[in-house]
Design a binder for these strands. Structure first.
Lengths: 117, 117
DNA sequence: TTGACTATTCCATATTTCTCGAAATATCGT
DNA sequence: ACGATATTTCGAGAAATATGGAATAGTCAA
């Protein structure tokens, strides 16, 4: 991932409303959620939400498809993985003692501590 | 990590100058680098750099200590790890197919692809 | 204590981002 | 075609962020 892309993604996530939306979509899985449904879940004003969805889309973090009158948004897992990879690459570029705990964090049993995978 | 802390850290990193500084400090290791040295390495104006170092400090991503006339900045690896953990926790809260590639990413041999750890 | 050096703080300006109401666009069922 | 539903786009004001020059503060060496 290029630096400018990473900066865009980081900036998109550095916002409470957008972070909430992104987490919601990650949890919603591949089926995604309609914009109105997202607004109801998060209490966001529709026009504000729409602007924030556009920011997340521009950052490549979410995608969308039309379904009748609704537009369904989904998290882009690839971009998410690339962003984490970029940050970890940065991290691992330095010292081994940083990398090790991260590897542990990523590979620990996902059933622990409320995780579902 | 709390959401508001994560947002602060993401926002701090979502800036070319600050991301450059942070990467530099991660690579510099525990010895860190003096502000002037950072400015020379990145070509930043000193007062601008100082403001950006303050943002990174407020976000908990870097620390500092005085050494004579210089102030030495160092990356805070714990905060970095917590931030990645927060993002991955979010990610893994959803579906297994997202988590698996991340675990692979984190645990692959660090000597591959230009990585040093 | 004076002068050189290192870095931060202060300040004004410029730029960007955020928000939401109103209007516009797209789709559907009848 | 019409009315209802779903969402986006537009516009404009408010708020936050970014920048660099000048002034300030801490440290050292002689």
């Amino acid at each position: 991932m290029e630096k400018v892309i990473a900066i865009g993604a980081l900036g998109a996530l550095a916002h409470e409303g957008r972070l909430d939306v992104f987490r919601l979509l990650v949890r919603a899985g591949p089926e995604g959620m309609a914009a109105g449904e997202i607004a109801r879940s998060t209490g966001a004003v529709l026009s504000t939400l729409s602007a924030n969805l556009a920011v997340l889309t521009r950052a490549g973090l979410i995608g969308s498809r039309r379904d009748g009158r609704s537009i369904i948004y989904t998290a882009d897992y690839d971009q998410m993985r690339d962003l984490l990879g970029f940050l970890m690459e940065d991290c691992c570029g330095g010292k081994p003692e940083i990398c090790a705990p991260l590897a542990e964090l990523a590979s620990r049993p996902c059933t622990a501590e409320g995780r579902t995978c």
